[in-house]
Design a protein around this nucleic acid. Structure first.
Lengths: 205, 205
DNA sequence: GACGAAAGCTAATTGGATTAGCTTTATGGC
DNA sequence: GCCATAAAGCTAATCCAATTAGCTTTCGTC
């Protein structure tokens, strides 16, 4: 109840904002303290250490992504849902590079990690987006993983300047969405079950 | 030519090995010096600073990946080439996590960066692997980017414990390869040109 | 056998993270 | 209105990794 009246929530929110500006890796206790107008050691009243702070940012970001995705998926299905899903995630990655990096490069601390819960919610949304394609249960886990991989990879490459902007990345992104959409449709129409590949039973993540 | 007789090459090689053991982020001057049996400041006779060291590791790794991929692609085409390509990269990522992370998270220093040259060689190999599919020039850049995104994303997720191992990631990986293979085949057979999506002219990266 | 550059070393500085221990401020209970 | 107390800050001090400065040793060469 003293001076600045900061809460853990405030501190993490400020850290998230700062991470977007200077980069998640460059997020520092000193910089954050300065931003909040307090001295560095005072931060330890709100977070146990830098790792905790970063983990908090990751959780907050993943939660936010989950909410945005859930909202945008309302009333959409099939290709429409896929486009909305991927577009939302890419958009988030571009507007909040630091937070996106946090959300996807932070290791889980255990089975009860709130970050895991937040991630699960996002995965549930991906699963929901795929529902309209009528994909076999056995393929669902793999399809989800494929989509997650693609999104993360795209965000990573773009952030690292992975491709040198010959055609705009955005165009490739749209191309990729179409590529995936066609693949999923083909999957659904059951043209040929995914051959040779073992099928899964458990719709885990 | 005194005592240990180390060269820049030796130092970077040791750093790469160390990175695989402790993680690229955890690679430290002190740890490396200890590993080499010299004092920390002595490292500065071989690299200008930590950033230079890490950049060197990245370049070495990317070069090695490029060679492995080029070799394994000899005499293969189509799905066979795609499987070999992706399999090789995933295998590299799994056996050399630190180096893989280095290669794909290091920013280029400029247009004459040797890391850029090494990356370009890898991209050329991906391009070669795709050649057998008879993909339209206009689609090539996007296809390459899609594949890179997928590989990197998969490696990233697996490393971060992104998926909780319900079915083994390897199975999903195989599934993903098949998914992409089918998509590329469909593309080639020109069923329908990628609609709505702008086409590229320049086969950049 | 001396010379010069390369490769090491020690000492010292800097900056970020973290800890210890003290101070100040809201607040709830009287 | 007054005081005890826990929360929220602060200063001082420690630790560790990176980096710089300046000195020393080792070799290959002539």
């Amino acid at each position: 109840m003293p001076r600045a009246g900061l809460s853990r929530r405030d501190v993490i929110a400020a850290a998230a904002e700062l991470a977007d500006e200077v980069g998640f890796q460059q997020l520092t206790m000193g910089l954050l303290a300065q931003r909040l107008g307090i001295r560095t050691p005072s931060l330890y009243k709100h977070v146990t250490d830098l790792a905790d702070l970063k983990h908090g940012v990751a959780t907050q970001a993943m939660t936010e992504v989950g909410e945005e995705v859930r909202d945008v998926l309302q009333g959409r299905s099939g290709r429409d849902a896929l486009t909305a899903l991927l577009g939302t995630m890419r958009s988030y990655a571009m507007t909040h590079p630091g937070q996106y990096a946090a959300a996807n490069s932070t290791r889980l601390t255990g089975p009860d990690d709130p970050l895991l819960a937040a991630s699960s919610r996002v995965i549930d949304s991906i699963s929901a987006a795929l529902r309209g394609y009528g994909i076999a249960d056995a393929d669902m886990v793999h399809a989800i993983r494929t989509i997650r991989s693609t999104i993360h990879g795209f965000a990573l490459l773009q952030e690292t300047d992975g491709f040198q902007w010959s055609p705009e990345p955005g165009i490739s992104f749209d191309w990729m969405i179409e590529f995936i959409d066609r693949g999923l449709q083909a999957l659904a129409s059951g043209a040929a079950p995914m051959s040779g590949v073992a099928r899964a039973q458990d719709p885990g993540d």
